[in-house]
Design a protein around this nucleic acid. Sequence first.
DNA 1: TCCCCATGGCTAATGTTGTTAGCTAAAAGC
DNA 2: GCTTTTAGCTAACAACATTAGCCATGGGGA
Lengths: 187, 187
Amino acid sequence: MPRAGLDPAAVVAAGAALADEVGLANLTMGLLAERLGVRTPSLYKHVGGQEDLNRRIATLALGEAADAIGGAVQGYAGRDALAAAARAFRAFVLEHPGRYGATIGVEPHGPDDPLAVAGRRSLGAFRAVLRGYDIAEPDVDHALRMLRSLCHGFATLQAANGFQWSADIDESFEWLISFADRGLRAM
Amino acid sequence: MPRAGLDPAAVVAAGAALADEVGLANLTMGLLAERLGVRTPSLYKHVGGQEDLNRRIATLALGEAADAIGGAVQGYAGRDALAAAARAFRAFVLEHPGRYGATIGVEPHGPDDPLAVAGRRSLGAFRAVLRGYDIAEPDVDHALRMLRSLCHGFATLQAANGFQWSADIDESFEWLISFADRGLRAM
DNA sequence: TCCCCATGGCTAATGTTGTTAGCTAAAAGC
DNA sequence: GCTTTTAGCTAACAACATTAGCCATGGGGA
């Protein structure tokens, strides 16, 4: 019985990668165990179960998304920052649909939940973009929600193949960035 | 053995209602059968299985959404139409989170799939709103995708309790409608 | 160096859920 | 009234998540 040398982080990382490959809905404990060269019940030594695994994948994903967006925005402001953030977000969702899907519908257990921390961090990356615009304080929260809805909606619709008809999707996304930029500058 | 008098439509309607009650993830064939006063395997006389049931619920939901939005828009144009459509859409998602959730990630099997027909119909309701603005033809598809992303993103984020912090959510949504209206009028 | 014990792996077993097979009685058509 | 279709049933099976309980590994202390 040679040891596999697993730990929670390795299990979560493999779970996230597998979710991206086969889709979150097809991520099964048995499949993940097989991928890790281990029998299914062994996973329970590292994660609490499927719900806990999903939570941890979501936390990982939100942290990675925050890094990706934050990194992309570095050195830019205004329209350039907005475009960089939006593109980085969409790229992340399209490259990692499984782990991003894990973030939908999970709620933090409290303000100290790592999930909540990662969520605030990724929100902060978007909030930084808004500092490049001249937005009155009471409007900032609304603008943030608008940006988030726009990016989340577009990326998830595309990931789910929700855009059926002809027009080019990349072009639509660039159009959408311009639309948001014009609106924010006009405030 | 008295007959229950079921048919596919009744099963799908009950499934949609149950999904709204307990959440799509908790919609189980056994629970639905119990709700209908029937044993689980009997459901398979009316629907092909869980995937088929989900598809049919999605089709129902898209049709209902199209009706709700189309009805709300009647007699309005421009900003009023946009606001009516957006509010009707969000109300539908919040009142029927289960059946709306069923629409996410399902793909039509072809252009004649009832799912595709219902999808085009609900899209048409949004497209009608855009006719009240002066938008150049090549921009219409992009604007449509923008509207859809905005409404879908906002409604699903709210349904998943994705908006944590303080600001009032209804107020944010109204703000978002104004934002979109200003942007569309400025084209 | 040797022992010990915490721990990560295993097998076996259980409960839940989706699904199929095959039977039977109720309805519907002639 | 007889036949045919069919909607319901029971029984059974397969996949999956999870728990219980066993045992070997391997690191830390005597």
